[in-house]
């Protein structure tokens, strides 16, 4: 099977991207010293003895932003193909293409306005 050259390039770039850290980090092993000590491998917190773990429950606000991100990222998945074929559809069925997308964006904007009003967007 003949693979498209454009796809092959993507593959080659990924392989080189993986190869560089592999080669650099394994060749570096020969050059760098290795003298481990228990003091050295203590978690660094500006010289203060660390207390407790940092794998703890985290501020829920980050989660809310992640949720918002998912919603609008999916919106962009719909926007991209629409934008690509917009001019053809505009010639075909008229301005209804634009109105359709405006309705879709409007619904998401209502969601954004709701989040805004609920103070999800302000970082306190």
């Amino acid at each position: 099977m003949q693979l498209d050259e454009n796809i092959l390039y993507l593959f080659v770039f990924f392989v080189i991207g993986i190869a560089l850290p592999l080669v650099a980090l394994s060749l570096g092993k020969i050059l760098r010293p290795n003298r481990p000590s228990t003091r050295k491998s203590v978690t660094y917190e500006s010289g203060v003895e660390p207390t407790g773990e940092s794998w703890v429950q985290f501020n829920v606000r980050y989660y809310l932003f992640a949720l918002l991100f998912v919603i609008f990222d999916v919106e962009s998945v719909f926007l991209y193909p629409w934008a690509v074929v917009y001019q053809e559809l505009r010639a075909d069925i008229g301005l209804f293409v634009l109105v359709e997308m405006l309705i879709f964006i409007l619904f998401l904007l209502i969601g954004l306005a709701y989040a805004w009003k609920k103070k999800v967007l302000s970082w306190k």
Binding site: F13, I18, G28, K29, R32, P33, P36, K40, T43
Partner: peptide, 28 residues
């Protein structure tokens, strides 16, 4: 030529993998 220090409390496999994961897409 700096020593490669991995903190004893760290999650070692993920700790080693992370820089590569950050770099690969940058080049791709």
């Amino acid at each position: 030529i700096k020593e490669d220090i991995i903190p004893s409390k760290a999650d070692k496999p993920l700790f080693k993998l992370a820089p590569a994961i950050a770099f690969i897409p940058a080049f791709a």
